[in-house]
């Protein structure tokens, strides 16, 4: 049974790598990268974070990914229909606001159109948006636009989106919890190229420094010795 699963996983990975050029962008936090198939997100794909409610921290991970995507060049587009995005906070994330275009659509249709247009533009590194509702057709259009333009679509969705169909290549559920030294966020990979049923990844953000680290780091000796099998190596 395990052998079949490994075979299927390899097949899926091969299909995925044939479809898209192998260009990955760091998610902006190393502990998360370690658990992702290509150590990051694939350019020209959609990434979906489902937040567990107001104040859950899903946008924070989206911003870290946007910052990482823009490091290689390209502008950032923020489609903010709710007009609640707070630029001074983004400045604290070291986002280049000079190179950021903020779009304030007023309707759901315009919001979807703006995301699609931005994703289609190959000089845009990443598009961050907070769409509340997306039909399957609209979602598919966004996915095709991202593939066409090679941009990274970072969508932060409400909890209600969990039961909706998705065309994102990576879907994560973000739920916060109380950490000892910082803010703890639990990231569950709901969908991730061949990885199913993995354990949630526990991240901890330091209140003082803002550093994102693994909440349960492996002991240093184990890291050096490589005794704990790496999930990527296991797949290879």
């Amino acid at each position: 049974m395990d052998h079949k699963i490994i075979q299927l996983r390899e097949l899926l990975n091969r299909k995925e790598s044939e479809k898209k050029p192998c260009q990955s962008i760091s998610s902006g936090c190393l502990p998360l990268d370690r658990h992702l198939p290509q150590q990051g997100f694939q350019r020209g794909s959609l990434i979906e974070w489902i937040g567990g409610g107001v104040g859950s921290g899903a946008s924070l991970l989206g911003m870290l990914a946007a910052r990482s995507a823009c490091r290689g060049g390209g502008a950032l587009v923020l489609v903010d229909r709710g007009q609640s995005f707070y630029p001074p906070a983004a400045n604290a994330y070291q986002l280049d606001l000079q190179n950021t275009i903020v779009v304030h659509p007023t309707t759901e249709k315009d919001e979807c159109w703006a995301i699609e247009q931005a994703l289609r533009c190959s000089d845009i590194a990443a598009v961050v948006a907070w769409p509340k509702r997306l039909t399957s057709n609209a979602f598919r259009r966004l996915q095709l636009a991202a593939e066409h333009g090679g941009s990274l679509g970072l969508l932060v969705r409400p909890t209600t989106a969990r039961n909706e169909s998705s065309w994102a290549s990576l879907r994560m559920l973000v739920s916060p919890s109380v950490g000892r030294q910082g803010w703890r966020l639990s990231v569950e990979l709901l969908r991730c190229g061949g990885l199913f049923g993995t354990k949630p990844i526990e991240l901890e953000i330091d209140d003082q420094t803002g550093e994102v680290r693994d909440a349960h780091p492996r002991p240093l000796a184990a890291q050096l010795a490589g005794t704990t099998p790496d999930p990527r190596k296991a797949r290879a």
């Binding site: 390209g74 275009i101 190959s122």
Partner: peptide
């Protein structure tokens, strides 16, 4: 390192401004 001055981004800004209005496409 592509910036906002790139022709593709300029064209995108124009398209979005034309549909959504001048006040909807902004910089911080």
């Amino acid at each position: 390192h592509v910036r906002q001055d790139s022709p593709l981004v300029t064209s995108l800004i124009d398209r979005m401004t034309s549909r959504l209005g001048r006040q909807a496409i902004v910089r911080c």
